[in-house]
Design a protein around this nucleic acid. Structure first.
Length: 457
RNA sequence: GGCGACGUAGCCAAGUGGUUAAGGCGGAGGUCUGCAAAACCUCUAUUCGGCGGUUCGAAUCCGCCCGUCGCCUCCA
């Protein structure tokens, strides 16, 4: 299996350091607002990676953090008149709720920054001891000039960073690019005791401490959105490698392209967010996952309701291919699709190509059904490979109102069946049209008439 | 200003040196059907932003130009 490694800028053969065990760390969210579709994209990508690795027989230990203390959390909590803890609990709950809805597997561990303070302090102290960090006026900074290859992940040099000229001057720092490891507490802020006075950890050091604690000195895969490459992941590398001496901190760095909304990146600062809950009101979890997986994970993806609706329609054909058949002929052949799927996934997770294999398989199943072939083994393959992408092919549950209306719809359908038998087609069509106006579609098949609620717009 | 990515059919999107340029949505025609729907079949890019170049051969490599976007600051 080949994966693109941001560190080398190349597609490389993936080989875990320890046999079939894979140590994967994915940066989690800062829980102060609702989970949006950009988060969903990232976690669908890494969930799919994990599912595929497991499909190949790897044992994946997946750790994902929560940054449960930072400026935004403090600010938002104060605005809302709740404690930081309450705010964090609410949005961690929201996160799990939406990720579960999207069929994203739970990580092995979900460490939180505030519960790892001693480990974080140890790491900062170690960095100071080794000359890679220095205290200044209640803060502690990382000394970027102490790491000769600082910038290797984002492929830039300190000089070029300074040329960016958007760095604010800070008198406490030795170098403008030095970043904070420990923030001295301001009045009214939550804080923890430390050798440098009361304060809280900087963003980057949390991930270093937590990955070290739960996965050890060296990771196989470290993932996140492309917006984390600099400074977050660059700084993680600097801290971790300087603290442990183990290089590289992570052997593979993987970054997903960012979701765009219209022409802009979807981001917290732009406020152009679409919540996952909102998207799930309109589309099935499968449709949202498949939408994300229909383009390559490293490409940016523009989200639109029209696009999601098109994907939902395409899923309908696949779902129908899974309706049991009653053919007695030879089994529909699935091996060529299976190997195409695997080849695609082995090639840096080429999910668009893998998805194309699934659509082709669905077509062959439907074709085989029409030809009287047995289709159950093809269907099993479709279900299994779809599962590797986290797709269930389940219909969305019908709204409760439909359950109440079901007996009446059944009655109308049976009346219509009588009318058709009597060749009273005008009246039969009147019933079908009337139901269609109510969003109920009828299909007359060999086994009688089926009705269903129209779910796509 | 620095670093980087991308531009493939009406739309979304694979393919990155060599048989007929995946797949999906949409559209056209057909089979089936009382008519539909669904499913299936056929068609829907002689061509890959533009112009040059390298090569026996390029969407795929190189140069220039045009256009779009990301990162450099909190962000998945």
């Amino acid at each position: 299996m080949k994966l693109y490694n941001t560190l080398s800028g190349q597609v490389e053969e993936f080989v875990p350091s320890d046999g079939n065990r894979v140590k994967m760390y994915v940066c989690g969210v800062t829980p102060y607002s609702s989970t949006h579709v950009g988060h969903a994209l990232s976690y669908v990508v890494f969930d799919t990676l994990r599912r595929y690795l497991e499909h190949k027989g790897y044992e994946v230990r997946h750790v994902q953090n929560f940054t449960d203390i930072d400026d935004k959390i403090i600010q938002r909590a104060q605005e809302s008149g709740v404690s930081e803890d309450e705010l964090v609990e609410e949005f961690i709950g929201d996160y799990f709720h939406t990720m579960d809805a999207l069929n994203i597997q739970r990580a092995s561990e979900y460490p939180r920054a505030t519960r790892e303070i001693p480990r974080i302090i140890d790491a900062i102290a170690g960095l100071i001891d080794r000359g890679h960090a220095y205290p200044a006026a209640g803060d502690v900074y990382f000394r970027v000039t102490s790491k000769d290859d600082y910038g290797k992940l984002s492929h830039r040099t300190l000089d070029s960073m300074i040329a960016g000229a958007r760095i604010q001057v800070d008198e406490n720092k030795e170098h403008p690019m030095d970043f904070v490891l420990w923030k001295g507490a301001k009045p009214g802020e939550p804080s923890w005791e430390s050798p440098w006075g009361p304060g809280r950890p900087g963003w980057h050091i949390e991930c270093t401490a937590m990955s070290l604690e739960y996965l050890g000195e060296q990771l196989d895969i470290h993932g996140g959105g492309q917006d984390l490459v600099f400074p977050h992941h660059e700084n993680e590398i600097a801290q971790s490698e300087c603290y442990t001496g183990a290089r590289p901190f992570s052997r593979y760095w993987m970054h997903n392209g960012l979701l765009q909304l219209g022409s802009d990146k979807m981001s917290k600062s732009l406020g152009n967010l679409v919540s996952v809950v909102e998207a799930l009101e309109r589309f099935s979890p499968d449709a949202i996952r498949l939408y994300f997986l229909s383009s390559h994970y490293r490409s940016p993806l523009a989200y639109s309701d029209e696009g999601a609706a098109a994907v939902e329609r395409s899923l309908e054909r696949v779902r129908r291919a899974l309706i049991p058949g009653n053919g007695t002929g030879p089994q529909v052949e699935a091996d060529s699709h299976r190997s195409r799927f695997t080849t695609a996934m082995d090639d840096d997770l080429n999910t668009p190509q893998a998805v194309a294999a699934l659509f082709d398989l669905a077509r062959d199943i439907n074709r085989g059904r029409d030809a009287g072939q047995r289709i159950d083994s093809g269907q099993a393959a479709l279900q299994e490979l779809g599962g590797v992408l986290g797709l269930t092919f389940e219909d969305r549950p019908s709204p409760e109102a439909d359950l109440a209306a079901a007996p009446f719809i059944d009655l109308l359908v049976s009346v219509r069946t009588e009318l058709r038998a009597a060749r009273q087609f005008a009246l039969a069509d009147q019933i079908r049209d009337g139901l269609a106006e109510q969003g109920v579609t009828l299909e007359d098949g060999a086994q009688g008439t089926q009705w269903q609620r129209q779910t796509t717009e």
